[in-house]
Amino acid sequence: MDIFLQQLVNGLVQGSIYALVALGYTMVYGIIELVNFAHGEVVMVGALVSLSVIQRLADRGLSGWGVIAAGILVSIPACMALGFAIERVAYRPLRRAPRLAPLISAIGVSIALQQLAALIWGRNFLHYPEVVARTPFHLGGAVITEVQLVILATAALLMAGLWFLVQRTRLGRAMRATAQNPAVAGLMGVDVDRIIATTFLIGSALAAVAGTLVGTYYNVGNHTMGFLLGMKAFTAAVLGGIGNLQGAMLGGLLLGVIENLGAGYLGNLTGGVIGSNYSDVLSFLMLVAVLVLRPSGLLGERSAEKV
């Protein structure tokens, strides 16, 4: 039972990391139906910018959540600038283009960012300085650390904040209008270009936060860290119903839990015939099953109005 509880905690924490990244995917997708393939790489840049800042501060002997906040405060504008530039250079010219054109240019951006990061930060796996304590809390037999709690809370808070932004503010209304029909939104006085750019800025800011937390949690940073994370998060977003904020959160948590329970129990359940090496197969099969039953994801249908 303790073990089950621990696997559940593991899954929820990993899931909220997926959710953090998936929120960025889903924001952009909700507005312009573009799979921002490069989002994982923006997360990576966020992580590495923060790493540089946190390392400087840690070298001066500083520690605590303040240092991490400082890292986030620097990486947010950096990622926002990057996201803005990507949208301007690689996506905006393609807004009326065939649907797959922006996907390909997104792949190009993703490769480019990896190479640029390798040129700036080098190829080595960098150690993310430890500035927060790893004191474990005991939760009925399961262990959870402070960083894990912060990640869980941040994911939930950001989701709620975004939901509020989209549903309750003027900007949010403009975003929803743009998502439904950019042309009509434009006629109604919405500056569509500005709204889309703003969406990218928000998505990139989320990426900065996610990157920093991922780095802080796993204590590693590398120019290739974004790709797999991005793919998993994209899967999570689709699982929950892409374009839907609650869906991203739900999909992320679910994917994390399935992965961990799969890796934890596949071996036991099959008598050791198949083990943790098949946990990804299990997650994908689960995804297929969900999509066969609900072709637009778990919460997809409720998002008749996207975002």
Binding site: A90, L94, P98, S110, I111, Q115, L116
Partner: peptide, 25 residues
């Protein structure tokens, strides 16, 4: 000046983006 291996893939990526932006079809 710049690591040729990274530069090579960087140019490749830029070419990918440039072609798509200039000729979306």
């Amino acid at each position: 000046w710049l690591d040729p291996a990274n530069l090579r893939m960087l140019l490749f990526a830029i070419a990918l983006v440039a072609v798509m932006v200039l000729r979306p079809e």
